[in-house]
Nucleic acid binder design. Structure first.
Lengths: 229, 229
DNA sequence: CATATTTGAAAAAAATTATTGACAATCGTG
DNA sequence: CACGATTGTCAATAATTTTTTTCAAATATG
């Protein structure tokens, strides 16, 4: 599940700067240099957010925005040089989620990207959906805490994200590749035992050989799964 | 009988933020992006409160406010970018109930909304909801004072706003980005290390290593949270 | 049963993230 | 404008987590 950001601007320098910063924050980037290409890339890669320049060849940002809005509610941030038009743009009812005037600082852009994404995800997931209880295990992503039979267990960020994924999908087998893609967010290369190591630590911490009603079971040759005994 | 808030601002970004927060507090929201639309929506939905931007297309906030006041005493909170005009606006005898200068933090707005509504329905209990007592810590946003085990602690504005947010949501993890948006406001683009520094100062002042029953705990890789020991 | 492959465990190495202090910039006020 | 108070930035240092490495044990396969 990659986090892809689509950057659309006809100025390659600007694209490169934005791309560098976005990648630093862990997003993958695809770039388009005109309006038509933007639409094409959008359909092909299904990005989680679009940074959209207004002035582009072939089709301008406004029209691109309108077109995309007909089929998708993906967050769109409009970028434009004419900052006196800021209010007009937002008022145009294009369905854009934010507006950034040029010139901008890269930090400002990243802040806005994160803010827009947070706003979008915050709406969907209220507090309740961030907590899971199953077989005596409680995982709460609001407080980043876990409990086994009522006893708190100290888990690191990665560990709690992993157990959250498992507990959310009991019985389902996750391959190491799948876990790396889901939790780590990148493709798996090399033959390290990274996932195994994390599973081991989780097992140790959750004390899975004691009086516990669940298990992270090894599925030989495949991966791991969460199992309620 | 739903509690509907009418949000009027021509900047969709701001409307969205306010909407998200208001909804979180259990209010339903309707939005208007210009003055005429605001009047129309007001008549149609009979909101319990109106958040009204001054600068809007078609009809400005002042005129909207005057118009509405001819037929209704619904609470109105004026929002405006020109904060030096604060006193003038309130003195204009528009009949507005409160005034919020931009930039504002979403939390501040929600506090004012609740304050205005409470003033209307119940004049007496205004003070209570601006004061929190938890684990020997008292934070009073009326006087901007804090006490630990009965001893006064001198905190600056930012510091007390931060501890207020934490103490209001014990256990909940706030990321640095989240804090920047909540405390600093929607248009602040600063370094995330700034948050760390403020947390450090709060910890020092509240003497969190002494005989104190609470803690601002670091959640590695995520953020900070308020924890009662 | 022999062999190749996969997994588990521990420890070392690398990478990431947080804390802190010093200082700079800004704000508020007389 | 000068002063003190507050707030923001930055970089060094510290702390913690994550990844890699290694190797023995367990499991599949024929």
């Amino acid at each position: 599940m990659d986090k892809i950001i689509l950057i659309a601007d006809d100025n390659k320098d600007i694209v490169d700067i934005l791309k560098a910063y976005a990648q630093k924050e862990g997003y993958k980037c695809i770039c388009a240099y005109d309006g038509e290409q933007t639409l094409k890339m959008f359909k092909e890669f299904n990005p989680i957010l679009i940074l959209l320049d207004v002035m582009m060849p072939k089709m301008n940002g406004f029209d691109v925005c309108r077109q995309i809005r007909q089929t998708s509610s993906v967050p769109i941030i409009i970028v434009s040089a004419k900052n006196e038009e800021a209010e007009r743009i937002m008022g145009l009812d294009l369905g854009a989620d934010d507006y950034i005037p040029k010139p901008f600082s890269p930090r400002e852009v990243m802040t806005r990207i994160k803010a827009v994404l947070r706003r979008v995800t915050d709406d969907i997931s209220d507090e309740r959906s961030k907590r899971i209880e199953i077989a005596g295990l409680v995982v709460d992503m609001n407080s980043y805490e876990a409990y086994v039979n009522g006893n708190p267990v100290v888990l690191t960020k990665k560990e709690i994200e992993i157990i959250w994924l498992f507990a959310s999908n009991p019985g389902r087998v996750f391959t190491r590749d799948h876990l790396l893609e889901n939790i780590w967010g990148y493709e798996y290369f090399g033959d390290t035992r990274t996932v195994d190591t994390h599973i081991k630590r989780i097992r140790t911490k959750l004390n899975l050989n004691q009086s516990v009603n669940f298990d992270i079971k090894t599925v030989w040759g495949v991966g791991y799964k969460f199992e309620v005994k």
